[in-house]
Design a protein around this nucleic acid. Structure first.
Lengths: 233, 233
DNA sequence: CGGCATCCGGGAAGATACTG
DNA sequence: CAGTATCTTCCCGGATGCCG
């Protein structure tokens, strides 16, 4: 049974929900509140702690994050798990069904990438970057390519594997990478989506490239953005 | 630390927006406000007047609808158009880019249809029903089928064409339909998604079927719902 | 430090009434 | 019919503090 506001009886109007049969409207009942989808986005590559979520969602306040996590947990989208004794902290993780919401983020991203007001040069979380890779990856441009590419953003590391026209992302590993980018998610986005050259970014101290340089130059071409909407249309 | 500017020009002081480079977050800046996506949903099959939108979005208030339409127009998602003199009323219509947002509604719908708390027996707008057909249509189940099926919901009429494993929806026409359902969107949803028999619905006076009865029985099987999430998982 | 409760100010959403 | 004006409610965001 759903929790009802104390002030309302059983037939409660459920004030701020749509309560339609339309499944899209129901989705908005579940994840339509502010920050909810972005919290899910940050968990899309694996569990995180409360403070990591707060740090990766600039602007969210602790109480709102608490509320969202409670709501998502009650809806069966997120679970709370306590790590084994050595680190007695708890983490939040998407349920299998929660992970299935990635196509929502992809549809939103594909559509909004065409927006005239979209500015790819703004700040970006690491998870956002790698989810955008999964969304925008063009298998045709990766024809015959097999590679392991590492990323070092501060203390975090990620590995992108490309093979057989597929792209996979893993957290917390760098092993056997032929190529390692070191810098920030924003700097990588500038190279991949902003058209900035690796040399220019290196000269500004924003991004360094170790390993297969030709691979790096090819990598940044694998994620074509859809054309912007022409304002006149 | 961010400081709020009290008075700002059109450059928006980032009042309540995420302002991230992540395209999904930008999408939420554009259409993440309450009611915005449902307004777009109601326009997805063609233009509508203000009062039609208000009637088809139970619970929205006039001022909120006005605000959403203004915001969507400013974002280039909706346009306002005045009909030719005889009917001097104006209608709202999605721009071409606005129409491209349908995959967002489909991703939301596909995902939320698995929700344990989703109840397909609740009220439903006609547009929601036909968009759900576009989302859930299974070409394999429509193998070799070519048909024109009409729907009469009060004063509104719709025509669904199925051919070559594709499904198309048109408003305001019924011509050459081999089959016509008369009743409500909710009653059709009960037959297609709720597993209620056409006989039972007819007995209750909710839905009547004229024309090819065998086609009607087949039609209601063309839109399989994904399995619900098992609560224990 | 991680997680959660509480208080407060501002603003968005909701309901109703009113106008061209 | 197509909105505007006004008032109320309550969510969001920020700060602070408690507790383990």
């Amino acid at each position: 049974m759903k929790l009802k506001k104390i002030s309302e009886g059983p037939g409660a109007p459920s004030r701020r929900r749509y309560e339609e049969a339309c499944a899209a409207a129901h989705a908005l009942d579940l994840v339509g509140e502010r920050w909810a989808l972005l919290v899910m986005r940050e968990l899309m590559l694996g569990p995180k702690r409360f403070s990591d979520l707060k740090a990766d969602l600039p602007g969210i306040s602790a109480n709102v994050l608490t509320q969202r996590l409670e709501g998502l947990e009650a809806a069966g989208i997120v679970t709370r798990r306590r790590l084994p004794p050595p680190a007695s902290t708890q983490v939040y993780e998407l349920t299998p069904w929660g992970y299935e919401s990635e196509p929502i983020l992809q549809a939103l991203g594909r559509w909004a990438a065409r927006s005239p007001s979209h500015d790819p040069s703004r700040p970006l979380s690491a998870v956002s970057l790698f989810l955008s890779f999964r969304t925008m990856f063009d298998p045709a441009r990766a024809e015959g390519l097999a590679a392991r590419i590492g990323f070092r953003f501060g203390a975090e590391t990620f590995l992108v594997r490309i093979a057989d026209g597929r792209l996979e992302v893993a957290r917390d590993q760098l092993d056997q990478a032929e190529l390692i980018f070191t810098g920030s998610a924003r700097a990588v986005a500038a190279a991949v989506y902003g058209g900035e050259s690796l040399d220019a970014l290196a000269a500004k101290g924003l991004l360094s490239v170790e390993g297969d340089r030709a691979l790096a130059e090819r990598f940044v071409t694998l994620f074509p953005l859809p054309p912007k909407v022409c304002p006149g249309s």
